[in-house]
Design a protein around this nucleic acid. Structure first.
Lengths: 208, 208, 208, 208
DNA sequence: CATGAATGAGCTTTCATTCAT
DNA sequence: AATGAATGAAAGCTCATTCAT
């Protein structure tokens, strides 16, 4: 299977000043993507937001895709980090609530990057492939955790995929911008749905 | 709240020949969007696929957004149709399986249009608003159906939103391209997750 | 041996109007190349000279290399045509004079294209390869004609290459812009040099 | 006649270290020009090959033209040096062989610089003028030598120009990259062509 | 209605050159 | 002297849209 070429980042900055510039370009890109999305974002907008000249952008990134890739790196790392944390808690439901809460917090924090990533996936194979890879690894981690709970005829990968889709979908849909209390309540509801679903699946009724 | 301007379709064709041309343009656009996404699709690609000349496109659609809008019309209508069908079935789980199955079938049938719609949502307010509207109406329908089942402290809109997100997310993620048997099994798993989740939520434990 | 990619010409014009536009673009390019050379020529200059808009250029040519390639086509065809004409004449020297005269006339007529071709050869492998190919074919033709005259130890390919280099070099060096009389005299001198050189070579003295 | 401005070299380096840097920049430029030609060569390529930083280039040369000019200086000096050497030898043919051999050796040694010079001549008046000047001086020297041999109606400048064009053309055309034996044979053939041509011209037949 | 040539705004990208450190 | 980040003036090229035929 051929992996599409990565949008190569240009040589890393060698001085502190360069580091600062690269960072401010990333921050600017994050803002612009949040505002207008990937397709509508112009390099010009990014450099304007970063307060640097046009050419400077190309000192640090080969093109628009490369900046997004840098942002995606950060988000992907964070997501996989959360996925690999141990599931510990008093009981099943408290554990799920903690795990889901962590995911939701992260997704909300990086909502703009994720939305941009999704958009870019629609027409750039590289980002599609990267998204698939991260989702798969996350789902596999989750599947590993729930396998002991639900070991009936239902495929744990399917169960994990569905539950992950639920959380990601809910969080990225702008349904959760409300205050912290609402958010906590929503997370508790999601946890309860997972718990009930998993418990029910574990009973084995309805297995193929 | 201001609703973004719709991408006005040009006057409907009067003759049978015009009807055929418009149809083949829609079909061509669907193909092109499926292949390369919205941002990367060019009017030139569409007319080439439809086998008509460049200028003809503008006889039927004001611009690229207008063709997508026409495709979205069809899909939105179908989705709302499924959402409004009555929920009937022997027991809760069989009912859910039937309902979810209908959604999944539709989503898979129109997967390309939906993916394009999502992509366009990221930078065109009109499509974002339209997507939000349809999702809301679907979630509200589902909320109405599940309210009697789960009337505890958990907000039925949240529950419905989450369950819909799960199905939509799972179906649009390319996890279901397998054969009909796999698909049926996955649908059964999803139904079981819903059923368990709903049942558990109904118990009221964990309500805020 | 890999031949460098040709600068693909875009689809040929389908109407008379298109044909006219393409022709005037070629003529404009010839002028601009003659004035400022290949590297300094901008597409903008060409379209300005042709009196068409920027985008129109790209309807007919993929880039600057493609227009030059079109011009080179014409010149290469003409050169090979002259090379393949039979060598007839009263005696050796009259024959040579006629042949050299034909080459010189052609080279002077297409001097600007040839100069541009040479320039482009310096940094574009495609044009280098094309130039090498044409020179080789011309030299081979000439070698075929002189082989019977000079069949001593001297390699006819070397002899032919040298004589062709002499004519091409002399004609392209701007030494011949004078009037027709001067030109005729110079051609006669060249012919005499060839004749003498060939005759001397044929004597076999000095063969390796 | 106005002579185009020379690409002014910046003040000569004062220290030994500066001398080393300047030398390595010249060597790097020679390499880069040989690889990609003049138009495609970037200052960046040159500094990378020399292993110095971007800014350093401008300490020694005002711009790209200035480095080429420095290289051209060396070659021009060498060419004029060869042209001015006395023509001595047992007989005409041995003399010609020696002279042509010296030119060919030099041209092959500096082939890359000469090719670059030719390329730059196509769009930079300064280099065109310089090339014309050197060729003219060389041709005049040769004309002086052959005048006594061929004093018939044929213009000695034309004869000299043609013979020089033959040697330069043959040598710069990449036809001579083979081993030393082939090279010697080719030089002998060229000398024989000159000798024959000159002798024939001297006979006066065919004079205008 | 259909055609396809023409337009030109808009964006991307490159690279010579400058300058603070 | 040397470094390498920053600049910004060019070009290049694309493609939605218009319009004469």
């Amino acid at each position: 299977m051929t992996v599409p070429d990565a949008p190569a980042t240009t040589a890393a900055p060698r001085t502190a000043r360069g580091e600062r510039t690269a960072t401010s370009l990333r921050a600017a890109a994050r803002e612009v993507f949040a505002d207008v999305g990937y397709a509508a974002a112009r390099v010009e907008d990014v450099v304007a937001a970063a307060g640097v000249s046009h050419g400077t952008f190309y000192t640090y990134f080969e093109n628009k895709a490369a900046v997004l890739d840098a942002l995606v790196d950060e988000t992907a790392t964070a997501l996989l980090g959360v996925a690999e944390e141990p599931w510990e808690g008093e009981d099943v439901e408290a554990t799920l609530e903690a795990v889901i809460g962590r995911f939701v917090d992260l997704i909300l924090r990086d909502a703009a990057v994720i939305a941009t990533w999704l958009e870019a996936s629609a027409h750039e194979p590289y980002f599609r492939e990267r998204l698939r890879g991260v989702r798969e690894r996350v789902a596999r981690q989750v599947a590993g955790h729930i396998a002991p709970i639900a070991r009936t005829g239902h495929d744990p990968e399917v169960v994990a995929g569905a539950l992950v889709a639920m959380v990601e979908g809910y969080a990225t849909r702008g349904l959760m911008t409300a205050d912290a209390t609402d958010r906590r309540a929503a997370v508790r509801t999601l946890a309860r749905l997972w718990a009930g679903g998993l418990h029910h699946v574990a009973e084995g009724r309805g297995a193929p």
